[in-house]
Amino acid sequence: MQTDPDFNSLLPTHRLDRRGFLLTATAAGFALATHPVSAQTMIHTDDTGLATGTASIDTGTGALPIYHAAPAQGGPHPVVLVVQEIFGVHEHIRDVCRRLAKLGYLAIAPELYFRHGDPGKYDSIPALLKEIVSKVPDEQVMSDLDLCVAWAAGHGGNTARLGITGFCWGGRVVWLYAAHNPRLKAGVAWYGRIRGDASGLNPRHPIDVAGELKAPVLGLYGAQDQGIPAADAEAMREALKAAGKPGEIVIYPDAGHAFHADYRPSYREAPAQDGWQRLQAWFKANGV
């Protein structure tokens, strides 16, 4: 199994902040994700003016839990799928949904590991990768995301304006979904893996589907990422160009992996804020 880049970004560099741990350890997967944590950098978006909550979607093989956030008034709202890091739908991912809802979107974050286990029960990243993450088939993920789109259509979403964004594990999924769903208008992939070994569950990776994208993708990467070489991001840029596919790759020179994760020391404020502004402009320019 190929190690997820998030593993390299989570090796402890200083003592865990106890206050930050106690504040954040309640959400699924969040305690594991925050080693080490910085309480000073964590961003919290309130739900004032929003309709937020949880729901479940019948997949035929179980009930898919989702978190959703949207403006409390008006609609139908354009839809953005938010795809988790390896740690599941923890508080940071929920906060991203609320940030998008403040911009006028119906944001949906599905628990894409639900058939395979609860990431909140793991205190070891290698065990999480081996026992859950490595068992999730790409085909299943694509199907679950399609079901989220169908759910959105019946719950105040305008699926004619459909976008997707995701982080690390979810960043890779963004590229794959852009090659999967012809209804997608745009995607934003945050430091998603581009290359990898083919397997039965993960037969292809973003570099393999560059010529099949059905929607433009903005890829946001860090030049200091120890898991995803900048050369891979450059290769994706060239693959998009060679295939004549619209897309953009941004590589931040001083950022490493997980630079948007404001609850971890990997957070880099300037690239994170620039990336967020680019996400908004990308969605608007592409009809989301």
Rank of each mutant, 00 (worst) to 15 (best):
P78K: 04
P5M: 11
L128R: 04
A55Q: 07
A285T: 08
D58K: 09
A230E: 14
G53M: 12
I194S: 00
I66Y: 04
V173D: 07
H44L: 10
A25E: 12
R193I: 05
W151C: 02
C97E: 09
A223H: 03
P110M: 10
L240G: 09
L129N: 04
S134G: 08
Y263P: 00
K241D: 10
T61K: 11
Q224K: 15
L218Y: 01
Y252I: 05
G157V: 00
G200A: 15
P12I: 13
R19G: 05
H35R: 09
N181C: 11
G256P: 05
S266G: 00
R264E: 01
R237I: 02
M142A: 15
S124Q: 07
P76Y: 07
P71V: 07
A270M: 01
G192T: 10
P229S: 08
E131H: 13
W175L: 02
D146W: 04
T24D: 13
T34A: 14
W276V: 00
A153K: 13
V173C: 05
T165G: 05
R183S: 13
G247T: 05
G74H: 07
G227F: 08
A127P: 00
T48Q: 13
Q273G: 04
A63M: 12
M236C: 03
Q73V: 14
R18E: 12
P76A: 13
L81E: 09
G117F: 03
R161M: 10
G163R: 02
H90P: 06
V136R: 02
S266E: 12
R264Y: 03
